[in-house]
């Protein structure tokens, strides 16, 4: 057989195979196709056998043509086989179909209480400014709670904070300033001090906006040159952190026994942006916290040299911040612990 003749036969073989592959419909007929065109009894095998009769000059080209034929036939088979494999896999995958709208396993995520979400948030803020966190007991001495905070016995300011007594000298703390007395005592007259004291406090007060138990975060900074300007900046940063960068912050002079000068900080109302609404009682401003420069007498009675040291203090109502931040309507919700309430703070 000449090369010319082989090319012609080879083309006929391919045409035949092309025609036949279209009739292949299952694995059986695919195997038949393989036997007929690629198997031991196929023409292809015969062509390989006839190689030995080919004249020497044409042998190389004949070989190339033969391999080419084989590759074409093989690829016809391969393509078909791959198509079958894919169809089979597709069928299996179809059977494995899941309802992707069903819930995932172990998806339960609990939630922090919003009170503690605020504590955590404020704590993180102050850790970033280099403060530490101080804890103290809730059953406190009158001395730590009042006297060392510049509120001696019979001081009119005691009427502002009607406390729960356990005996003549022991009360449930009415503010977390009592922890500041402990911090100051531990510092033994040496600064700097930068501390926040979060915790529960108790007052004999119970109405729509007050609960006899609520939370405070008090802060205290004592150093040789911490200024009132530092306080104003700290509070501005804090209030924007809590209520958004766009909030305006204003300071009003006020009075507290343990600070002087004292200021209260207001933020522009986030509901109405200062236009006036029911949340801000139509003033455009919401009162958030009280603060001031530590009264020198507080420094003196707590063992600090008020000529050398100065500093500031501030107090934030945890419940109040949480109520404003999350739009909670009633302080009582914090303490009834309905899980439908707590569940809403997963993200916090």
């Amino acid at each position: 057989m000449t090369l010319e003749e082989f090319k012609k036969i080879s083309q006929e073989e391919i045409n035949k195979a092309n025609e036949e592959i279209t009739t292949v419909s299952d694995e059986q007929t695919l195997n038949n196709f393989k036997g007929r065109f690629l198997g031991k009894k196929s023409h292809l095998t015969d062509f390989y056998a006839s190689m030995r009769d080919v004249v020497k000059e044409e042998k190389k080209d004949f070989g190339i043509a033969l391999n080419d034929l084989r590759a074409k036939l093989q690829s016809l088979f391969d393509e078909k086989e791959a198509a079958f494999r894919q169809a089979k896999l597709n069928a299996r995958l179809e059977k494995e179909k899941v309802d992707i709208t069903l819930p995932g396993y172990n998806n339960t995520l609990g939630s922090k209480h919003p009170f503690y979400a605020v504590v955590d948030d404020v704590t993180d803020f102050f850790l970033g400014l280099g403060y530490t966190v101080a804890d103290g007991p809730e059953v406190e001495s009158d001395r730590n709670n009042f006297e060392l905070m510049n509120i001696p016995k019979d001081h009119p300011a005691r009427d502002m904070q009607d406390s729960f007594s356990i005996n003549d000298n022991t009360i449930l703390r009415s503010h977390t300033s009592s922890v500041q007395a402990r911090v100051l005592a531990a510092a033994q007259g040496k600064g700097p001090i930068k501390v926040i004291c979060p915790g529960k406090v108790y007052r004999r007060d119970n109405d729509a906006t007050h609960s006899h138990q609520f939370g405070q975060i008090e802060g205290l900074v004592i150093s040789e040159d911490a200024t009132f300007a530092n306080l104003l900046e700290t509070l501005t940063l804090l209030l924007r952190h809590l209520f958004g960068e766009k909030r305006e912050v204003r300071f009003r002079p006020s009075f507290f026994p343990f600070t002087e000068p004292s200021v209260e900080a207001d933020i522009s109302c986030f509901e109405c942006n200062g236009k006036g609404c029911s949340l801000c009682k139509h003033t455009g401003w919401i009162e958030i916290l009280g603060s001031g420069m530590v009264n020198p007498n507080v420094l003196r009675i707590n063992g600090f040299d008020d000529k050398k040291y100065q500093g500031f203090a501030f107090g934030i109502g945890i419940d109040r911040v949480a109520m404003l931040k999350y739009g909670i309507d009633d302080i009582k919700r914090f303490y009834t612990n309905d899980v439908q309430f707590i569940d809403q703070f997963r993200k916090e």
Binding site: F126, T132, P192, K194, V221, D225, N230, L232
Partner: peptide
């Protein structure tokens, strides 16, 4: 207020739980 809020002179301390 003629007082500009700032952190000038604010003591640098280490903050950690």
């Amino acid at each position: 207020s003629k007082i500009n809020p700032s952190l000038d002179h604010f003591p640098i301390t280490h903050g950690e739980l």
